[in-house]
């Protein structure tokens, strides 16, 4: 329908739209729920949301690209959120970022070729006293050093290889 490369199962959205009408969810909530379903926001999903929420596609795209939480591209199985807040900065977040980038051979915002890891730096995870901190999916890792970081990544990779 949208003519784009993606071909998402739009029926998964039915419940989201039902909820929306029930709760008076705004566009952001709808997008959040859609992202929870698909892992990211495929273009056809955005168009579907535009139609069902009565917003223009331009507006939906505007909202989806304004907030850092929304992703228009697929992310890796493990999403690394690296905190770059003040406390983490003071305690060496830059060296952690360097270690991750070197270990995974990706830059901020990228996904590894094997689709295992994505890296995203974030403003602050609010775990300042454990700085530097990163989150990998639901798990938080604090008091990082470059060596410790690499160890964590290798451990996950090792686990996945099995």
């Amino acid at each position: 329908m949208c003519g784009h490369c993606c071909n998402s199962d739009l029926s998964l959205l039915t419940e989201v739209f039902n909820d929306m009408n029930g709760n008076g969810d705004n566009l952001i909530s709808v997008l959040q729920k859609a992202q929870d379903i698909y892992g990211y926001l495929p273009t056809d999903v955005l168009y579907e949301i535009a139609e069902k929420t009565g917003n223009s596609p331009a507006k939906v795209m505007g909202v989806a690209t304004f907030y850092t939480q929304f992703r228009l591209k697929k992310v890796g199985k493990y999403l690394i959120l690296l905190c770059k807040g003040t406390a983490c900065h003071v305690n060496g977040a830059d060296s952690i970022e360097k270690a991750i980038c070197e270990e995974l051979k990706i830059q901020d915002g990228d996904t590894t070729e094997d689709g295992l890891f994505s890296l995203k730096t974030v403003a602050c995870l609010g775990c300042c006293s454990l700085s530097p901190v990163m989150m990998i999916n639901e798990d938080t890792y604090g008091s990082l050093t470059p060596a410790k970081t690499v160890e964590i990544l290798r451990e996950i990779r090792g686990r996945e290889a099995k």
């Binding site: 949208c2 168009y47 223009s56 331009a58 507006k59 795209m61 505007g62 690209t65 907030y67």
Partner: peptide, 20 residues
């Protein structure tokens, strides 16, 4: 409502957005 802002901050652009 064809035109919209896309992105945020310095690299915000204006783009028309519609299906094919």
């Amino acid at each position: 409502g064809i035109l919209g802002l896309v992105g945020r901050g310095f690299d915000t652009v204006i783009k028309p957005e519609f299906r094919n």
